[in-house]
Design a protein around this nucleic acid. Structure first.
Lengths: 224, 224
DNA sequence: CGGTCAGTTGACTCTATTCAATAGAAGTGG
DNA sequence: CCACTTCTATTGAATAGAGTCAACTGACCG
């Protein structure tokens, strides 16, 4: 399943402390099982609390009237879904696979924000996410299809212990396409090319084995 | 010049409070004049403090080895350049035009972070920027050239008082192109088309008058 | 006044999309 | 458990939207 695959984000250290703070709080979060493709919250919903992915994965989406979709972020186990402090959600969050999500009611968080140590940690998480969002803008604005896929694979692999050989990608090709600003066909074609070129192996459609990480990294940086 | 043109961002309210907090601090910021195209900080520079745009405009860039560039954000008067709490800058910041920038040394900010009210405000700013970064990912990943330009114009206009007829765009066509993930030629062509179609007027290359805002908004949302 | 730079426009090219067909995996119900 | 449907992924051929290359114009600057 996913538990051993798609991994927590780079700022796991900080997020761990957050977890401790939240666990110790008067009102700890409440776990809920969310089935695949089920929605955590829609655009326009009130921000009535915060979510933390325990297992599985969540995608954050923006839809256009004609059906075009942009996935602006994925959240894996351990990740706190922190983007908005405003009154209403500007994005939709959906489960990529069956997931366990912990929900912290807004008052719990608001109370914890009085602690400068805690709010400093949240600020660190928000800034880390901001940095990776800005990196992703370069991916979407300036990189070729091959560079996008290489970046996606390398970044996903970085979240995992180097020991793991095969990485699990819980999301569909359509999810990857909407995350990278491409079409399913292009994603499929580029992955096939990477396989032909010996850069990766694809044991099944949700698993990838990185065969030539150096080459993939050069490709992702745009100097291959 | 620019002072009456490119405007502070949407979270001006919060940023105003920040300004008050910083002004009252023991070590207030130090103003510096930064000439056009001059660099505030480079990728890899230590994060030795924070900057606030007093007048002018700043662009945040990421460069690729072969010269491709993505501008991930513009900062206008009043904006606090807050993206990284890490040790090193991951982006380069440059002045779009001659600008006055206020610099707050890192200790000043770190001390203020002890105040939960202040750090809460910084968190709000960071989250606001995160939301707009995610919106921009949809622009870069899914919108056509016309939709990108329409979004850029409408968003820039929103920062200004509705009374202003003519909006000043301090940045060059190349800056706009690198912000929207296009080429200068495409930016130029689309703006010319908008002018022919009566959506905008271009008194000079750094000024735009919005003629048909409704149509531009429909275009930017992708249902035109 | 000459030179450089920014912006515009045109002609042609190419990368990724669209449309279409097929193959394979997964879920459903008898 | 197997037949049937449906969804996901892959591959091919044709198309289109934005990019590239190039020429030209007008500002700005020394």
């Amino acid at each position: 399943m996913l538990a051993n695959g798609f991994a927590p984000s780079a700022c796991a250290q900080t997020q761990q402390s957050i977890f401790v703070a939240l666990s110790g709080a008067a009102a700890p979060g409440r776990n809920q099982l969310v089935k695949r493709d089920q929605t955590l919250f829609w655009v326009g919903d009130p921000v009535d609390g915060y979510y933390r992915v325990i297992s599985g994965a969540v995608r954050l989406c923006k839809m256009m009237p004609d059906g075009r979709r942009q996935i602006s972020d994925f959240f894996g186990p351990g990740d706190l879904i922190l983007i908005e402090l405003s009154a209403e959600h500007a994005f939709t969050a959906e489960a990529v696979t069956d997931s366990v999500i912990c929900h912290y009611p807004r008052p719990t968080i608001d109370a914890l924000l009085a602690d400068p140590k805690f709010s400093r940690q949240l600020l660190t998480i928000a800034c880390d996410r901001l940095v990776s969002a800005h990196h992703r803008m370069a991916v979407l604005g300036r990189k070729t299809a091959e560079e996008r896929l290489a970046t996606f694979l390398v970044t996903s692999a970085k979240r995992l212990p180097a020991s793991r050989q095969v990485m699990s990608l819980p999301m569909s090709r359509a999810d990857i396409a909407d995350y990278l600003g491409l079409t399913v066909e292009t994603v499929s074609r580029v992955l096939s090319k990477f396989r032909r070129d010996g850069l990766i192996d694809l044991p099944d459609s949700h698993s990838v084995r990185i065969m030539d990480r150096d080459q993939l990294e050069r490709l992702s940086d745009g100097d291959a």
